[in-house]
Design a protein around this nucleic acid. Structure first.
Lengths: 148, 148
DNA sequence: GGCAGATAAGTTGTACACAACTTGATTGCG
DNA sequence: CGCAATCAAGTTGTGTACAACTTATCTGCC
């Protein structure tokens, strides 16, 4: 029974350690562009959205982050000149987030980031796909159970 | 090429999201004992060590956390009465961390935590073992490359 | 039309992470 | 021996995360 409490047996620790290790790989790469890892994730969503200008909430659903995290983070990205926050004319509670030209241009300059990071994991393409799918399944199972 | 920048394709995001989702599962369970997730990890190491009283650095190696994170965290666990920090008599730079009776007793009361959490992931035993080993491999590959 | 309840974003407070720095102790080398 | 380099822990500053709360707006229902 007590063996279950040994650190290296715990999936949770493996997940926690791997997540931080991978962030360590991103840090110097993103630092070249003055970005943190969550800031990069926000840009990924915006690049994907094209001209749609999602609201803060919509970003939150995609990234599973709340306004308490996103508000200051977006403020910093706005200060860096990468995006603009605009109150919606239709619903003044909403704030729409849109890329600036500078923010859009950054996409091309960071196109090689995923490959550089994937390489640092030391896993094959197939292993990466498998790992990603397992992780996505874990995340979705947890969130499904929480909604019940 | 640009498809690589789509959020759901990225292992990094899957890892980041899964790590936070799993922490969400721990939160209410650990909250019953007044602990946070990193605090629980520290206790796991101490329970494992028995009477050895590791130093702050040794805890850091196991958990891959530095003194900047551990110092305040350990101070909080000491304030909660779960452990004691003592300057080493042999080398006064070192601080040895040892459990109190209360800290040791907590182990029994939290023995069911891993099973409750594992269940929440919705994965089978075999899948969990496989996931853990893949993640451990990722973490180790990254750290090995960093040392070169 | 008017207001109770819901909703969106932001703020506040606590707790990690981590880089960079400080302080005090120890070690090794000339 | 003496002291420069190293090392351990702690501190400071920045940036997430997240709970709890505030403020402003909107929606539905009467």
């Amino acid at each position: 029974m007590t063996d279950d409490l040994v650190l290296r047996r715990q999936v949770c620790f493996a997940l926690y350690a791997a997540s931080r290790a991978l962030t360590d790989v991103y840090r110097p790469i993103l630092d070249e562009h003055g970005l943190t890892y969550p800031q990069y994730l926000v840009l990924l969503v915006l690049w994907e959205h094209g001209d749609e200008a999602p609201t803060v909430s919509e970003l939150g659903v995609r990234l599973r982050l709340d306004s308490g995290t996103l508000s200051p983070l977006l403020k910093r990205l706005e200060a860096a000149g990468l995006l603009v926050r605009t109150r919606s004319a239709v619903d003044e509670r909403r704030v729409e987030v849109s890329l600036t030209a500078q923010g859009r241009a950054l996409r091309e300059r960071m196109a090689d980031v995923p490959l550089r990071v994937a390489r640092a994991t030391g896993l094959t393409e197939a292993e990466l796909v498998n790992l990603r799918d397992t992780l996505t399944r874990v995340t979705e199972t947890i969130h499904r159970q929480k909604e019940q």
